Amino acid sequence: MAAATMSHESAHDDALDSFLDKWRARWPEWNVAQVFVPHAQRETVLAWAALQQELTDAAWGGSDARPGEAKLAWWIEELQGWSRGGRRHPLGIALQKLGAPWERLAMAIPSLRDTRERPRDRDEALALLQPFARAVADVETALFDGTATEATVAAIQSTLLHSHLALGGEGAVPLSALAGAGEGEHARVWGAELLERWPASGAANRPRRLWSALARQRLRRGDAALPLPPVAALMTAWRGVRG
């Protein structure tokens, strides 16, 4: 019986690691940036990042919206379960017990689902993301002892827009940027517009400042999906934690 229990726990740990590794693969910069996060928080930070990636991939990934919509509906039920002490997803091993407002995040998922359609412009893109970003800010307040200020919400909105661009490329570009750019330049023009109006993140919690700084530096280099070299990632993270 003990061996069976250990095997079951090992399988759960392996499943958790697979989701963490999926996020690390997209953000290899974290291997150096994480040195600016207290060691005791690193597992939580990584699992929270992986959960956000699962939600945004479901909202924005693929050419057919229906599989992602089904995943988001499942996540609504899962996060509501976390608020009642239950869990099914491996990420719950690291997160469910922490007592964040998971039900509030679940209630915001439909607004994230609605951001799949191409917005008219940056203002509409930000407005559509605001309910989800506020729920994310509330979770981060609980996880990292921060404060859900308007500056924090703005930093979350911008990193979400970067994530959408990195995942969807030109499919994430608003109509206004499509109209103002030549063929093949839409993603670059939209990235430059995001960069021009990137909000200060000094009031945000430390993990969010790091994620914001890394996303901003990727945009500065001209490719939202291209990871930074290790030295650039280290310097970017250092500047990020300084605010």
Rank of each mutant, 00 (worst) to 15 (best):
H89F: 06
I93T: 02
A94S: 04
W102E: 02
E103C: 15
L105I: 13
A106Y: 00
I109C: 11
P110W: 12
R116D: 14
R118N: 13
R122A: 15
R122M: 15
A125Q: 01
L126M: 05
A127P: 04
L128H: 15
L128A: 15
L129F: 15
A137D: 09
E140C: 01
A142P: 01
G146W: 01
T147C: 14
A148N: 03
A148I: 04
T152D: 04
T152V: 03
V153T: 10
A155Q: 09
I156G: 07
I156P: 07
S158G: 10
S158E: 15
T159F: 12
T159V: 12
H164F: 05
A166C: 03
G171C: 12
A172K: 13
V173M: 10
P174D: 13
G180T: 08
G180V: 02
G182S: 06
E183L: 08
E185K: 11
H186R: 11
A187I: 03
R188C: 13
E193D: 06
L194W: 02
L194Q: 06
R206D: 09
R208S: 06
L210N: 06
L210G: 03
W211C: 11
L214H: 03
L214K: 04
A215H: 00
R216W: 02
L219S: 05
R221M: 07
R221W: 08
L226R: 06
P229I: 08
V231C: 05
M235P: 00
M235K: 08
